[in-house]
Design a binder for these strands. Structure first.
Length: 946
RNA sequence: GCCCCGGUGGUGGAAUGGUAGACACGAAGGACUUAAAAUCCUUUGGCCUCACGGCUGUGCGGGUUCAAGUCCCGCCCGGGGUACCA
């Protein structure tokens, strides 16, 4: 092979220049990428005698900005595992697709009139092009796009199943609605144990006498996909409702627009029915503790009890939920959520005006205000009193917006002595505070002097009737027992997890397969699927405020109007991993054979930002499909790794205020300056290319510089990678300059996969040098392929087997950065040994191939192999090449290492002691003292205690 | 506030309780070159010393241990999650 000339970028003269080159990645990498594509090298079969391994990446939303170096990080890691598993003899499923519905394309459509599909497809093409250049081993025949009717047919299909099932709490699974109607026909609603909304009870006779519409209305309380008037997060700016995980601090996660609460008729998914199973399932998963913790908190299980309080002068009970039944003797008032059903009834005439104005005030208060003004206490007395069921004491009933309508019963018993929120409320309204729990070993004190409540569950009960003297935990149990035996309530469990609002008032999403008859929703027959997204004349709500689909012509089915909402972003992403198993199946979501073979995902890699959204919804979706006999496993993602964020490293220049002069970093403190972000492409090793800088923007054309030793040094900052900060590093540029293998290695070399870290292009030279060094092991000075068949030496074999061992161990624990380091050490050692032996290099090519597949394929070919290295056999290490006869013992005195001493590994401890004591250096460090003790750990260390 | 996860050279980072700083970048010096690029060699935690060598050192303060970056207790700082959830 002849040496070749390639353009390389010259930093000094700032031009591409031709130089003599050894490893020609620009030719070799595209060659193999084409070959893999043409040979369908990575096509996975749904039938195989091999064991399966399913490696999945969270599929991307194809944004207009394209991929930056942060995106492929996880894909590279998963690709390494995929290729590694293939070498181990697994049949590997490693697919990729696009989460193609989303707001940006729709916003763009609103602004420009371009159909979102056009924008989306363009972006997808760009993503694909960028991914192809990195050399991933995806099975592209299985690609899915959530906006493709061929795919969303099954999203709609699943929705129909959700509509046609209810959750039976007795069998603890979803069952067909037909089993429910069967029950109603013979038993009425009595004794049904379902996850359902409350409704008036009915008998079998009453059920059978109902009209179809009445029956449908009843059933709507049970369906897993149901339509109801619910309080939603309404974002006026985006013109749509948002799910809880799409809202943060009262602002939309996307765009940061204010969100208000609004009562709207919406589709919801009864995910709350699965709360306990979603919680329990976490135990079986190989996920990080922090991620499990996030999900646990989001599901928010709390054990407590419901207690009914009588109302003085009214034949009504007020039901509250508390996790502290032990503090029932410390209750001094009650608070209802402003939206509570009984507010009207409880309000006494003389308080009606005050209550009305408080209700009006809370209604106009935005979510944002409500959340940020937590410290501000507000509320209003209703004029009514409740009766403490254990003490018979009358206590005032308030309304306040610190009590939420959606949690528990929407009413609380306030224990100001032991709950900080109740304490703040009591102080504000001058309500009594009673101490009922006393910290161990302390005397009770006068609560009127307290500055804060005592919220801890540690302590002993006081002033509490029959539980006085008990520990808190014991008192809880005893109180629940008493309440249950008195028929006042029962122990219950509450979850924070709410049902998922499933309607969006948007255009660019899956249409619901739903039409309306007499105002009641009905599902389209499956034969009508997919229901395609219709054309509209504008991507905006109608003048009447209806969603964009209301603009579509003939948006009806057999004369009945079709649903005009669309599904949310998480609809299409909740079950995509199942579709990959059988992506081209036109007749079913996926076949039984496919799902029974692939089961679930063995390794899932993606960002932690999906912890409370996608990863909860997908688990729910999968459990539902499991219940109806579709999914093969209860949990979709066995092992999950959250790759860390790659942050940008911005470059900064300093303009002397009011001038067009720029001062170098080290001199900036002498001037009054303004910090300006500069595009990182104009900066190399923190040195600004001043010429390019002048050309960057017209206003900089006559920029002047105050230099340090002839150079302009830039400052830097680690922050989000973003266009507006000019710090986006895109992978194509790096592939162009260094090649895909170098980029792959470098992204892995940056640090542990899970950790966030700043991108710094400087370091990539290191992996680039490694790649060429590795190539040179196989080539002579003139780049002629030159590999010897001579027997390898012990030293060469030791290097080889040490590397195999380390890489295998590290891949198993997903520690890819240390793998790359081992490869570097290996190449350094073999270079020093001048090793070009086939028996050493050939196994290394296979071992390296998951990390740097292009160079590995080329060398594999040069070594004389016909097929792809992708299906070679992973080399195994042999311990016998690693055994040493001697060990360089570190000798420590009082734990401080002083010198080392080579001793045989099989030397008995007593002999080692003797040998060390005989060493003249030992004498020196003993300083004439007698060693008090000697610790000898064979093969590890010698420590002498003085 | 509560719950997680982190804190190691100039930088990214390595280290089953057993030689802290592997590997790499950067920097400095040198070789080759007309010059550059590429490549190679040397040095590179801090302090003291011409050197040999010594002291010190993994956010801070304690503790356990023959031995602590690693385990325990109490703080400080950074990142993430969550927040009137009763």
């Amino acid at each position: 092979m002849l040496p070749c000339h390639l353009p390389l970028f010259c930093y000094l003269c700032a031009h591409y220049i031709n130089i003599l080159m050894d490893y020609n990645f620009r030719e070799i990498e595209p060659k193999w990428q084409h070959r893999w594509s043409e040979d369908k090298t990575f096509r996975a079969d749904n039938q195989s005698s091999k064991p399966k391994y399913y490696v999945l990446d969270m599929f991307p939303y194809p944004s207009g900005a394209g991929l930056h170096v942060g995106h492929p990080l996880g894909y590279i890691a998963s690709d390494i595992v995929s290729r590694y598993k293939r070498l181990q003899g697994f049949n590997v499923l490693h697919p990729m697709g696009y989460d193609a519905y989303g707001l940006p394309a729709e916003q763009y459509a609103i602004q420009t009139g371009t159909h979102p599909e056009i924008t989306t497809n363009k972006n997808i093409d760009r993503y694909r092009e960028q991914m192809d250049k990195i050399g991933f081993s995806f099975d592209w025949e299985r690609e899915v796009r959530t906006c493709d009717p061929f795919y969303y047919k099954w999203t709609q299909w699943t929705f129909i199943q959700l509509f046609n099932h209810w959750y039976n709490k007795s069998s603890n699974k979803a069952e067909p609605v037909s089993s429910l109607t069967g029950y109603f026909e013979t038993n009425g609603s009595n004794g049904i144990n379902a996850a359902a909304d409350l409704h008036d009870p009915f008998t079998a006779a009453e059920w059978n006498a109902m009209t179809e519409k009445q029956q449908q209305e009843i059933l709507m309380n049970y369906r897993i996909a149901y339509l109801s008037d619910s309080w939603v997060n309404w974002c006026a700016e985006l013109g749509t409702v948002l799910a809880n995980d799409e809202v943060s601090n009262g602002l939309s996660v996307r765009g940061g627009h204010p969100v208000e609460r609004k009562l709207m008729r919406q589709w919801s998914l009864r995910i709350s029915a699965y709360a306990q199973r979603l919680l329990d399932g976490l135990d079986s998963l190989d996920w990080s503790d922090s991620l499990k913790e996030i999900q646990k908190n989001w599901i928010g299980r709390s054990e407590g009890c419901e207690v009914s309080f009588a109302i003085s002068g009214l034949n009504e009970k007020l039901k509250v939920f508390t996790t502290r039944p032990d503090t029932l003797f410390g209750v001094t008032f009650m608070v209802l959520a402003p939206e509570h059903d009984l507010v009207g009834m409880l309000t006494k005439d003389e308080y009606r005006d005050a209550i009305e104005s408080y209700l009006a005030w809370t209604k106009n208060r935005s979510e944002r205000e409500r959340m940020t003004e937590v410290k501000q206490v507000s509320g209003q007395f209703t004029g009514s009193y409740a009766v403490n069921p254990l003490t018979g004491q009358e206590i005032p009933v308030y309304i306040a917006d610190y009590v939420l309508t959606g949690y528990g019963t929407g009413a609380i018993m306030a224990v100001p002595g032991h709950d900080s929120r109740d304490f703040a409320f009591a102080r504000h309204f001058n309500l009594p505070v009673v101490q009922v729990v006393c910290r161990k070993g302390e005397e009770p004190s006068d609560p009127s002097g307290w500055l804060e409540s005592y919220d801890s569950k540690e302590g002993v009960m006081i002033n509490s009737g029959f539980i006085t003297g008990m520990e808190v935990k014991e008192a809880m149990r005893a109180t629940i027992d008493r309440i249950e035996s008195m028929g006042l309530g029962r122990g219950t469990i509450n979850f924070r997890l709410r049902d998922a609002i499933f309607s969006r008032q948007r255009y660019w999403g899956e249409p619901f397969p739903v039409y309306y008859k007499e105002g009641m929703p009905y599902m389209l027959p499956e034969t009508e699927l997919p229901l395609r997204l219709p054309a509209v004349n504008a991507y905006l709500p109608t003048a009447m405020g209806e969603p964009p689909l209301a603009r579509a012509e003939n948006w009806s089915y057999n004369g009945y109007p079709l649903e005009t909402n669309t599904m949310p972003g998480f609809a299409g992403s909740s079950g995509y991993y199942l579709r990959y198993m059988d992506a081209s199946n036109p007749d079913a979501y996926f076949s039984k054979e496919a799902v029974n073979y692939w089961r679930n995902v063995d390794l899932y890699i993606g960002g932690a930002e999906h912890a409370t959204g996608h990863l909860i919804y997908a688990r729910f979706w999968n459990k539902f499909l499991y219940d109806i006999g579709m999914a093969a496993e209860q949990e979709p993602f066995r092992k999950l790794i959250n790759q860390g964020m790659i942050q940008g490293r911005s470059s900064l220049v300093y303009r002397v205020t009011g001038t067009n002069k720029f001062v170098s970093l080290g001199l900036k403190d002498d001037y009054e300056i303004q910090e300006i972000h500069v595009d990182i492409s104009l900066v190399n090793n923190d040195i600004l290319d001043t010429e390019k800088f002048r050309q960057w923007r017209p206003d900089l054309a006559d920029a002047e510089f105050i230099l340090e030793d002839g150079k302009y040094h830039c400052g830097h900052e680690v922050e989000k990678m973003s266009k507006s900060l000019y710090n986006v590093q895109n992978p194509d540029d790096l592939v162009e300059r260094y090649g895909a293998d170098t980029l792959r290695l470098y992204e892995m070399f940056l640090g542990p996969l899970e950790q966030s870290k700043p991108w710094d292009t400087k370091g990539i030279e290191g992996t680039f040098r490694f790649i060429r060094k590795f190539w040179k092991l196989f080539h002579d000075r003139d780049n002629n392929f030159m590999v010897s068949d001579d027997a390898a030496t012990d030293a060469e074999l030791k290097t080889l087997h040490k590397t195999i061992k380390k890489v295998q161990e590290d891949v198993e624990r997903f520690s890819f950065n240390t793998c790359v380091a081992s490869f570097m050490i290996c190449a350094n050692e073999l270079t020093d040994l001048k090793c070009n032996k086939r028996s050493v290099l050939e196994p290394l090519v296979v071992l390296l191939s998951p990390f740097a597949p292009h160079i590995a394929e080329e060398l594999w070919l040069l070594l004389g192999h016909k097929g792809s290295v992708s299906f070679a056999c992973l080399p195994s290490f042999d311990e016998k090449y690693l055994v040493e006869s001697t060990f360089e013992y570190p000798v420590s005195f009082n734990g401080k290492m002083r010198f080392t001493m080579a001793l045989p590994l099989d030397m008995p401890v007593a002999e080692i002691e003797k040998a060390v004591l005989a060493n003249e250096k030992t004498l020196k460090y003993l300083e004439g003292k007698q060693p008090r003790k000697m610790i000898v750990v064979p093969g590890k260390i010698v420590n002498i205690v003085l």
